[in-house]
Design a protein around this nucleic acid. Structure first.
Lengths: 130, 130
DNA sequence: ATAGAGGTTCCAGTCACTGGAAGGTCAAGG
DNA sequence: CCTTGACCTTCCAGTGACTGGAACCTCTAT
């Protein structure tokens, strides 16, 4: 199978697939014409990667998950550990983002947003008067 | 004032301050020794930038906000517009992240995380059976 | 005189792609 | 047989917002 079909089936742009080969996430065979020749297993791997990436796992997480995925004798605890770490990071990011949102929403609400120059958003960004 | 003191007062690493100069966010004068000589106004500007960045505004947002900040006759509507756009982006990101969190939390919860190889996390990442 | 802290520039790397140029290959239609 | 256009290849450069490091200069205190 050529890269275009694989791209469609795995839901990843061809560029990204080539990039994944570059960094060693998979090593498709080559046909006589030099084209990459993907197997069903490759497609499966790429779909796995697409899902993991969509869940926000880093490439290095993905590399580890893929290795565990292919290791028939892995312990599920290992996978759970990676996922839990990632979950903790997401929670932290969520809290930060929520905090940012609240602050910003408050500022936006306080700004009348008309032709006049006085603006609580800028005043706040300027910090406490010295 | 030298860059180190400014860094402390504005809460930004020296490297970042130099970078901000590189991209034209400020242009501190130079002393006879070639050192950057920051004014109080520069410090204020950098603190403004630090706050805006902490709120997740992009550098280009910051450039615009800084210009509005320095424009005595700006309309607060302009500032509000930038902030509202940013708020919308944050909301979108929050929703995505929350979705990711829920999915991942569900998977983590479903995985027993022991020595055995079967793992719902990997099963889910592998996608629907074909 | 010297040591150490802090300043300078410039280049390269991060992360995960993405865009574009230059060129090779394939299948279909005239 | 030739052309057209879609698709493939590689390689290089750019994104955003820094960050690390090397090589070198300057200041202050001892």
């Amino acid at each position: 199978m050529n890269i275009g079909d694989v791209a469609t089936r795995a839901g990843l742009p061809p560029k990204t697939i080539r990039y994944y080969e570059d960094i060693g996430l998979l090593t498709p065979h080559r046909g006589a014409n030099g084209y990459r020749a993907f197997t069903e297993q490759d497609v499966h791997k790429l779909a796995f990667l697409a899902r993991a990436r969509a869940l926000g796992f880093t490439i290095e997480d993905c590399r580890a998950l893929l290795a565990l995925y292919e290791d028939e004798s892995r312990a599920s605890a290992e996978v759970k550990h990676i996922a839990e770490e990632h979950l903790a990071q997401i929670d932290e990011k969520l809290a930060q983002l929520q905090q940012m949102r609240d602050t910003l929403a408050h500022l936006v609400h306080a700004c009348h947003g008309d032709d006049r120059p006085d603006c609580p958003i800028l005043t706040d960004l300027a910090g406490p008067e010295s």
